[in-house]
């Protein structure tokens, strides 16, 4: 596994979100609200958690955080960083 510094994590999350949301806006506007913009639904959220588990090696449970605590790329990155 790559070194888990913030730059790497940021890149991994951007890649993941681009795949899941099918839109590279997540990279260009990291404060975009994924829920309001209809970019992520319940199914996508489970894929995001699995992606974080597989690519960063961090287990996160679906009920651990509310969706509002994980609704922008920047918030997701910050929550992941907090747990490494």
């Amino acid at each position: 596994m790559e070194e888990r510094n913030e730059k790497n994590v940021r890149e991994v999350i951007y890649e993941l979100l681009e795949e899941i949301c099918g839109d590279d806006v997540v990279r260009h506007e990291p404060d975009i609200n994924l829920l309001e913009e209809d970019l992520i639904d319940s199914l996508d959220y489970t894929e995001l958690l699995i992606g974080i588990e597989e690519r960063i090696g961090l287990l996160m449970a679906p009920s651990e955080l509310t969706r509002e605590e994980m609704d922008t790329p920047n918030k997701i990155i910050a929550q992941v960083m907090k747990r490494l």
Partner: peptide, 9 residues
């Protein structure tokens, strides 16, 4: 959180 997400994951 406790049925759908866990099943999907």
């Amino acid at each position: 959180d406790f049925v759908f997400s866990r099943f999907m994951m």
